[in-house]
Design a protein around this nucleic acid. Structure first.
Length: 117
DNA sequence: CCGGTGACGCGCG
DNA sequence: GCGCGCGCCACCG
């Protein structure tokens, strides 16, 4: 599993939604290895940084993860709010409302119960 | 080889 | 809800 493959999954996250590190790991074929997603994203730079929506990846608690270098958390929050993702008083995102539900193929979609608000 | 360190996650008390 | 411990794994000194 290369960084590029991980970035490919992150690029599928739609604007206005978020995904968790663990969720991305699963979709990328490396379940239970959420830490590697954070590692891959921390390595973002140059062109990739502009084409990978890294700000849409948050932790399972629905909050923005602490970074070694502070400041980026505020930026991430701004980028998310700019595309319609809202935070509660505790700085938490309502995952029931904003978590990305990737749709797969037609047959699978038929078995999924679509819940919209 | 060993231990410490992360943009993590989950179960338990 | 909040800590803690543990699992996980690439990297680094």
């Amino acid at each position: 599993m290369t960084f590029e493959e991980i970035y490919a999954v992150v690029r599928r996250i739609p604007q206005g939604t978020v995904a968790t590190y663990g969720q991305i790991a699963g979709l990328a074929g490396i379940p239970r290895q959420a830490r590697r997603i954070g590692y891959a994203l921390s390595a973002l730079e140059g062109q990739a940084e502009l084409t990978v929506p890294w700000h849409r990846v948050i932790n399972a608690k629905g909050t923005i993860s602490r970074r070694s270098t502070p400041g980026f958390e505020a930026l991430q929050r701004l980028l998310l709010e700019n595309e319609g993702v809202s935070f509660d008083a505790a700085g938490r995102i309502d995952l029931a409302r904003f978590l990305w539900r990737p749709s797969v193929d037609r047959s699978t979609r038929r078995r999924q119960s679509i819940k919209v608000r």
